[in-house]
Each structure stands twice: as structure tokens, then as C-alpha cells.
Design a protein around this nucleic acid. Structure first.
Length: 198
DNA sequence: CATATGATGGACT
DNA sequence: GTCCATCATATGG
């Protein structure tokens, strides 16, 4: 059983059971919590990317179900974690079951457990803690160990808590680091936030 | 501030 | 052997 992580106002499964691009935008400003043993770290989601199925050439699902992509067809609101270039990348599955989709979390604004994040990252500057998809998993201690967990379950070690949102503008660009992107812009971020990826 | 380059581990052909 | 949904460091302005 895990400690209460605060907030406890989780986004419901239905929130994720929608068009991936919509989820990628609407999840901005909400809070990702991760707990390991008794350490809790958390940050506000400030940057995301939307990935679809075989029709999306940049998606891990572009070539159908593989070891990495198969969970994209699974239950919305569950986690998808895999390694690229020796860093873990953290995604949340979207769309109804049987339809592939996932949102990649690309950057967080550090909120809780900042000392722990500094230790894990071996960096002192706040803006170097969670300003990239591989950095934030290192800062929060996210590994494949939590793959498949539901961020909608209060007993899960990884949850997304609804924020009492201040208003902000959403920017969009092409996705970062992909070789074959589509015309549509599928990266979304909170305009002006100082913790975006670089 | 910007751009360039090498290291990195695993999945896949 | 090739290809990454990346990052840290180095160099130049």
C-alpha cells in the first residue's frame, strides 16, 4: 500500500479514452506523482507529444504490435515505459481499448521532492531536472518497473492528479527527435513555461 | 545564446 | 549491423 500523495483528485480513466491529441493537450497543467519506498517526487506536466497507430510513421506502433508498442492497444490510463539511448521514456496509453495511442510526457515543472531529483540527476539547476523526456524519468526514478500501472488508480505508485488550473496558452510544434513526422503538429506545451525541453 | 558531436543499450531486420 | 520519441559536453558568437 502506498502513502497518500496529496491531491488525490485523479483524472479518471475516461479522460484518457479519447483522441490522443486531445488528451495530450488536456493533460497539460496536471500533476504527475511517483512514489518509490517513502520518497515522493512530483511535477506539473508542461510538454507532451501525441503518437497514434500504424498510420503514424513516427509512432512506435508504425510497424504494428511489437514488444514496445503492444501496450498502445491496451487500457487507456495505463503506463508505457521503454528505453531509448539508455534513458527511460514515460508514456500514458490513450484511446479506447483496441485502438492504439499514447501520450509521451516530455517535460515537467518540478514541484515536490526536488532534493531527491537533484541527487538522482546529479544536477543542481532546477531547469535541468525535468526538461526532457529522459531527464524527467531519471529525476522521478521512473523505470520499467511501473510499466502497465494505471495512473488512474489511487493505490498505484504513479498517478496523475488534477490541478486547480491557472489559465495558460497552449503552443504546438512538430514532434522532436523523430525522423518522419506528419504535417500536423503533435507536440504541445504550456507557452512561456521555463521548464520545457531543450 | 546557438549548433555540433560522441556515448549510450535495446529492439529489430 | 542499423536505427533510434536522448543527453552532456564542447566550441563559437
Amino acid at each position: 500500500m502506498f502513502l497518500k500523495m496529496g491531491g488525490e483528485d485523479l483524472l479518471p480513466r475516461l479522460f484518457y479514452r479519447k483522441d490522443t491529441k486531445l488528451v495530450a493537450k488536456k493533460i497539460l497543467g496536471n500533476i504527475l506523482f511517483h512514489q518509490t519506498n517513502n520518497e515522493i517526487t512530483a511535477g506539473k506536466i508542461v510538454e507532451t507529444e501525441a503518437y497514434y497507430g500504424p498510420e503514424d510513421p513516427a509512432s512506435r506502433a508504425a510497424n504494428g504490435k511489437t514488444k514496445i508498442s503492444k501496450p498502445m492497444w491496451g487500457t487507456p490510463g495505463t503506463t508505457l515505459v521503454y528505453m531509448v539511448h539508455s534513458y527511460w521514456l514515460f508514456n500514458i496509453v490513450t484511446e479506447k481499448e483496441g485502438t492504439p495511442g499514447a501520450v509521451l510526457i516530455r517535460a515537467l515543472e518540478p514541484l515536490k521532492g526536488i532534493t531527491m531529483m537533484k541527487n538522482r540527476r546529479r544536477k543542481e539547476k532546477i531547469h535541468e531536472l525535468c526538461s526532457g523526456p529522459g531527464k524527467l524519468t531519471e529525476a522521478l526514478g521512473i523505470t520499467q518497473q511501473i510499466a502497465g500501472e494505471a495512473v488512474t488508480d489511487p493505490d498505484s505508485p504513479i498517478i496523475v492528479s488534477q490541478s486547480s488550473n491557472d489559465s495558460f496558452e497552449i503552443g504546438s510544434t512538430h514532434r522532436i527527435g523523430v525522423s518522419q513526422d506528419v504535417a500536423e503538429k503533435r507536440r504541445f506545451y504550456i507557452k512561456g513555461n521555463p521548464h520545457l525541453s531543450r
